[in-house]
């Protein structure tokens, strides 16, 4: 099934801003994060179609997954 992956800030470095990817049914956010070489500790916000979801959220056909890194400085 088709998933659009959007990356923000430093996650774009050496990767992409947006990519259309093909994934089997039942894939969750965690598996896509791992496929990108990102660690869970780096992950700030995870959105599916603009809504906040946990990493174990399963995606559906046509969903857009957006990943933002953790930002905490002041």
């Amino acid at each position: 099934m088709n998933i659009t992956v959007k990356l923000f800030a430093t996650f774009r470095n050496g990767r992409f801003k947006m990519d259309h990817q093909d994934w089997p049914e039942g894939v969750d956010c965690r598996r896509i994060v791992a496929s990108l070489g990102l660690t869970e500790e780096e992950i700030g916000i995870v959105l599916i179609n603009g809504r906040h979801v946990p990493l174990d959220q399963v995606l559906g056909h046509g969903d857009t997954l957006s990943l933002f890194p953790l930002v905490g400085g002041g």
């Binding site: 869970e40 700030g44 946990p54 890194p69 953790l70 930002v71 400085g73």
Partner: peptide
């Protein structure tokens, strides 16, 4: 999703 440590 934060457990510990700093961000970017």
């Amino acid at each position: 999703n934060w457990v510990e440590g700093k961000g970017i």
